[in-house]
Amino acid sequence: MNAGRRILIIDDDPAFTKATRAILEAHGYLVDEAQNGEEGLAKMSQQKPDLVLLDVMMAWPLEGVSVSREMMAQRDLQHIPIIMVTSIRSSEHRTAFPQDEYLHIDSWLDKPCSPSQLLSEVERTLARYERFKRKAS
């Protein structure tokens, strides 16, 4: 049932991207990746993923938050579910997330998280989005 669902990972940590990709692909998702916010936004516009896994801290501490705000501002991107996967909470910026700015996300996960946590969050968020799409149509 996951076949054909597209997930875009936006993260500057190749180790995390690689591992996450392996887990998601093993469960039948189509995975794409971007290493920064700009690249991520560009790929989103082309591919229209079903879900975005977004890192908070990339080139600057709240880059991910800016990406989510940018997605919110674009009509064709604002309905893409976002899960923030972040290690910011074990860094010196821990108090900055998740409350400092208005968040436009659907869920968030602390890194490191277990594969089962990641998968269940992805499945749950997608299922909820499906429900919404059914309701809207």
Binding site: P81, P98, L103, D106, F132
Partner: peptide, 13 residues
């Protein structure tokens, strides 16, 4: 529903 829920979350946060 999707955006209303998302905004509710952000207001709650």
């Amino acid at each position: 529903v999707f955006l209303a829920t998302r905004k509710a979350k952000s207001l709650v946060a």
